[in-house]
Design a protein around this nucleic acid. Structure first.
Lengths: 192, 192
DNA sequence: GTCTATAGACCGATAGAC
DNA sequence: GTCTATCGGTCTATAGAC
């Protein structure tokens, strides 16, 4: 990787984190430049506008998500176990979610209010999870409405993330994850 | 109501709507003043700072919520029917939620990222629903963990609102509301 | 004449953009 | 490093109701 690409990657990583922690609009150029440790002037060598950075951040998140889903698919033996991996995100990233919510959910919600042109790209990250989950449910039961089940799981984890952020109640998160797990079990049993 | 209070109320109503549609930070003084039809200068006669407006908006939302919950409690005969009223919000306000998400959820999420001092007050609106729902579940079954059940319903509707906003899929909303209704039925049946 | 409500000029700071 | 627009925030003059 040449120096240009390396700096670009550092900018994207810093912006990603700041957009998550502070929101897209609230994060200024200056804040990103400071986090990376470069001057604002240097900045424009890599990105012309703030929207360009946002696009790069969303692209990076999408790539990261694809890699993660592929890894889960490779590691976990059964569809049920794979779906369980997804459900576990809200526990594994519990601390971040409690403080800043779900990165996918909060970004799409913000971009919706801003009527931002990149909003569909942010939604596409949601869609990655949606179709991946749908695939697992189809494997579990080819006759099921896999997309509906996928959205149910997605909605469940979004609700948990939202209230975790609002109330900071870890017991609630564990309880609701267990509930989702149990629901998943019941789906598998029903298919036997 | 004197003229001062009337103008103040109009400002709060306009700010409420704009904060909902565009987010708190994105909404400028100029935008609110334009929406109300007054000059920016006049503004400071009624509110000194933007945070003061936010505080007034949150207070208004809390009062509105309390009134709504009281009305539901008065109108609906059974606890189950009352809880059902709550679940129906995502359908009744389906259009707004699809475009701007849940007003309570999106505001608390934004204020969390901004580390805004009024965030606890925004969360308190969530708590109004939480305790009201808990009360209904206690009436349904005094031995149940009413708060856990309340949070489950709250999380369910938050998840629906989030994905409704992301995907704009009305069939999904109806499906998930039906699912929550069925779950509620099962809770009632289990108690018999 | 006094008070209430209003308008609009104006401030420093900071935003994104170049 | 500079430029311009706009941000939240402040001050003062004044029009009209009483």
């Amino acid at each position: 990787m040449d120096k240009r690409a390396a700096t670009r990657a550092r900018i994207v990583a810093a912006a990603d984190r700041l957009f998550y922690e502070q929101g897209f609009e609230h994060t200024s150029f200056t804040a990103i430049a400071e986090a990376v440790g470069i001057s604002r002037g240097n900045f424009y060598y890599h990105f012309r506008t703030k929207d360009d950075i946002l696009a790069a951040v969303i692209e990076a998140r999408a790539a990261e998500t694809r890699a993660m889903l592929e890894q889960w698919a490779a590691e976990a033996p059964s569809p049920q176990e794979r779906i369980r991996r997804f459900v576990r995100i809200v526990v594994a990233n519990g601390d971040d979610i409690q403080r800043f919510g779900c990165p996918v959910g909060t970004l799409t919600a913000e971009l919706a209010k801003l009527r931002h042109p990149s909003r569909p790209d942010a939604v596409a990250v949601f869609t990655l999870f949606r179709t991946w989950l749908g695939k697992q449910f189809t494997e579990l039961d080819p006759t099921a409405d896999a997309d509906a089940l996928a959205l149910h799981v997605l909605a469940g984890s979004q609700g948990i993330a939202m209230l975790s952020n609002a109330f900071g109640d870890e017991a609630f998160v564990r309880r609701e994850v267990a509930r989702l797990d149990a629901w998943l079990d019941s789906q598998v049993t029903a298919n036997r």
